[in-house]
Design a protein around this nucleic acid. Structure first.
Lengths: 364, 364
DNA sequence: TTGTACGCGTTATCAG
DNA sequence: CTGATAACGCGTACAA
């Protein structure tokens, strides 16, 4: 089980390393007999070329770097699953990095990935990232890059995303069709592409039904543990309060529900709610909460396909477009949460909420 | 933003590469002035040593290979999160592999990881794996290996696991204290360490309360989509039917609930249930299902710490022990699932169950 | 058809 | 204190 090199084979057969090298990679200009001998010997010694030496020679590492904000987030872990599956099939390895939603760390990660000479980069931007010049430089230098989910409009690279516009449109339309007229939208950082696309879908649906867009009904933020409550208070204190909420993530959906319940606002008598979510579990978690489900795994697969195509120059003139993977609206009849869940949400102390991480309902 | 080498610095300063190398790594025998110049130049050129060249020299790759059955499983993604955090802090990279519960693929992954010359291996065995000689050989050759969660008793390496014994003991005890006397145990592959430990905890609790262990009440298996039902039928058809179920995973817990509901068995009047789970979400999913929660992230952290210590020979005579991270029993008053969830579980057609993957409730 | 020599980026060894 | 040289494993011009 030692680790043999091309040199060992050469010595064994009393030939030169170059002959071995050529035989191994099936060069034409080689004696069939020698070739056979080399192959046999390589087999016997269980020879494996040293990928590091290959990398040093500049023949690529057959590894791709994947940078995501968080791994322990169902959306991203599903996406990584898809990525790894494709990469494996095509003979690539996946090196994982987490930016932890930090711009600085994202840059550091990219640098690390490059210094490891990955053949390409697959990344989903941190929510802190607004300046993408460091990526543009890399891209201009010819490094294959594909963005997924959290993409930037300022980068002309291949992007793979959920169809956020259609998803948001469907969600909003569903609320309108169920009789709502003042639909609030709680969403995340405004500079994120996904935020913008969802907002556009929301507006388009309003427009379609002749409802006016009211910017007072839209709130952006990171919404830490106890920030959703005040936001809901503000909204409910408006001259004409909202009668529905469309939230941009699982976390926001739960936060919103908690807040509404704590304020004794019944659902759906007063308000209706839709969450934009990754989790199938949401289906069981809150069977009366309508959700827009994102095709995380497929996004990962498609992104990986594109990146590897790019690396292997399958399509020299590959169009630098944005691939949109369809989302699915799961509409429920009622938007009322079951009592026991509402009770739990309401009684959980702030302490509790801190000590029991809710990352599983974090998304986007 | 080019990529400069030690050679560039040497040329720039009209000195030799060796001097540069030495200056960079702060060798004593070097002119402070030269050193300063080199440092300054390196800084200016944004010099970064090429890790690949370093690897080729045999100084290690500062990368660790992580092999898990599935990434898109909340337990493992949390564990990987912990691993990555520690690795990052200590200057290591994480290369991820999925075995997809296949022995063959696991072996292939290990081989790939080794050929990439990772400095160490962190792995959680596939459920198919029973023969670990390939790992023993590696370990005997001095490759640092740490197993976590899914470990093998036939390997004398450092292991990091949840305290399955205590967890199972607490779960069983809770059921006994709530008046149950015939506690069935649905669990996974018998050769897995976690299975054995949980079974031991289960037996110990029975013993403590003077209940006899009945092997007819214990069922092992992989429990595919529609296999739990028949199993429950068998159990309920016993001369003395069980009055409680203790399941070894989220998936089993859900399957068991579905089966019970479909058979119109009420809970807790007839039976009581505890799931051994990773998911905090289980708390919300089924607020009256008691659960034993596993400290996934901490397991990952500790495992990574140990592995890196091993790699860096921090503790030359590091005891090759098993670290057990505490589990937590979250006991509920009632073991009855809310109606709406029971209804959903019961009405979901087999088609439905297939098309909507339940990986989020897969564990262990 | 096969062998020799060189280079990829770095460090260790040995001379100076 | 500093420089030249070899070596890590491999591929490939160039030479034979």
């Amino acid at each position: 089980m030692e680790t043999f090199t091309i040199k060992d084979i050469a010595r064994e057969l009393n030939i030169s390393t170059s002959t071995v090298s050529r035989a191994l990679r099936g060069s034409y200009e080689i004696n069939p007999e020698t070739k056979r001998l080399v192959m046999e010997c390589a087999e016997r010694l269980n020879y494996r070329p040293n990928p590091i030496a290959l990398s040093l020679k500049g023949s690529g590492t057959r590894a791709i770097g994947v940078i995501v904000p968080q791994i322990a987030n169902y959306f991203f872990s599903q996406a990584i699953n898809g990525i790894e599956a494709i990469a494996y099939n095509r003979g690539y390895h996946v090196i994982i990095f987490q930016s932890h939603e930090s711009y600085e760390r994202e840059v550091a990660n990219v640098e690390q990935a490059m210094s490891r000479r990955v053949d390409g980069l697959l990344l989903s931007l941190s929510s802190e990232t607004s300046d993408v010049t460091y990526l543009r430089e890399l891209h201009d230098k010819g490094v294959p890059i594909v963005l997924f989910d959290r993409v930037s409009s300022e980068l002309e690279v291949t992007k793979v995303v959920a169809d956020n516009f259609k998803g948001a449109f469907a969600a909003t339309e569903h609320l309108i069709q169920s009789g709502r007229r003042r639909i609030a939208h709680l969403t995340i950082q405004p500079w994120l592409s996904i935020t913008q696309e969802r907002l556009a879908g929301y507006r388009a649906a309003l427009e379609k039904y002749g409802l006016t867009y009211d910017e007072n009904l839209v709130r952006y933020g990171t919404f830490g543990p106890n920030e959703v409550g005040p936001m809901v208070d503000e909204l409910m204190a408006l001259p004409v309060a909202p009668d529905a909420f469309f939230t941009a993530s699982d976390r926001l959906a739960v936060g919103c529900l908690t807040a509404l319940r704590q304020r004794n606002l019944t659902i759906p008598d007063d308000v209706s709610l839709i969450g934009f979510t990754n989790l199938n579990v949401a289906e069981l978690l809150s069977p009366s909460l309508s959700t827009v489900v994102q095709p995380a795994q497929e996004i990962g697969q498609v992104a990986a396909e594109r990146l590897i195509d790019l690396i292997e120059r399958k399509h020299r003139a590959q169009p630098v477009g944005t691939v949109r993977i369809a989302t699915e609206l799961i509409a429920r009849d009622s938007t009322r949460l079951p009592e026991h869940i509402m009770a739990r949400l309401a009684t959980a102390s702030p302490e509790d909420q801190k000590s029991k991480p809710r990352d599983f309902v974090l998304s986007i």
